[in-house]
């Protein structure tokens, strides 16, 4: 385990990223494109909500990924704090903008869906509020990261923030069970199996896979960008020296 972690260096992650990026992009276009098109054009309308249920193919994948990406950041932050392997801090930095993107998408699509089904764009319900907290955690990550001039300090500070913020994840997940909320309870990851009819579930699962591939591809792209800018900085500083 320790040896495996040691192998995770910024350059080894970069070569992994170079090898997997193309595959991830292909997966994103195929699964995501096919899944969303299937859902938008061919899947049946819901018995109660009618056509507006189709927002599910954007809302649920982005909601799942907003939490999963944050969870991954929290795991990498913990590993970074324990081992101080910089690759994990860089990975966090690469995931953060993608997580923020999905969280924003989740809020926007959820808001539209809320207006169509509940009759309100926004309510201060436990699920919505805890997801808004997640949105601000991502914003906080960027703010804190920019607040330090010294990289090493910024990495430790942001890792602690991400780790403590992970407490929000179980609150988001169980908010609909612990408190009466306007948001409906879980329909996908629940005991007793999904409550979504297979004809709606299949394109939904495909969209989730596609969105995950897209998240991986985008993370690798940002990672490449970060490593290139670090290299550029090194070259510049060695030039001036």
């Amino acid at each position: 385990m320790k040896k495996l972690l040691r192998l995770t260096t910024p350059s080894s992650v970069r070569s992994l990223s170079n090898n997997l990026r193309g595959f991830c992009l292909l997966g994103a276009v195929l699964c995501g494109g096919f899944g969303v098109a299937w859902g938008a054009l061919f899947a049946p309308a819901d018995y109660l909500q009618g056509e507006s249920v189709r927002i599910i193919y954007l809302h649920v994948p982005s909601a799942i990924l907003s939490s999963v990406l944050y969870g991954t950041m929290a795991l990498f932050s913990a590993i970074f704090l324990i081992t101080r392997l910089s690759a994990f801090a860089l990975l966090c930095q690469a995931i953060a903008p993608i997580g923020l993107l999905y969280t924003a998408l989740c809020i926007v699509t959820g808001s539209i869906w809320g207006k169509l089904s509940w009759g309100a764009w926004w309510v201060w319900d436990a699920r919505l509020t805890s997801l808004l907290v997640l949105f601000f955690l991502y914003i906080g990550y960027f703010a804190l990261n920019d607040a330090f001039s010294e990289r090493a300090r910024a990495r430790i500070a942001t890792s602690v923030l991400v780790l403590v913020g992970a407490i929000d994840l179980p609150i988001i997940k169980f908010s609909v069970e612990w408190w009466y909320s306007l948001h409906q309870p879980a329909s996908l990851l629940r005991r007793g199996g999904s409550t979504i009819h297979p004809e709606i579930l299949q394109p939904l699962l495909l969209s989730i896979v596609g969105a995950s591939f897209f998240a991986a591809w985008a993370t690798f792209m940002v990672y490449e960008n970060i490593s290139l800018s670090i290299r550029l900085q090194r070259l510049e500083s060695s030039d001036s020296a």
Partner: peptide, 17 residues
């Protein structure tokens, strides 16, 4: 003053219910 509709976690095609 305001009424909001709540929907449950069941999704299924029209007609099936």
């Amino acid at each position: 003053e305001r009424v909001l509709a709540k929907h449950d976690e069941y999704y299924m095609p029209r007609g099936l219910e």
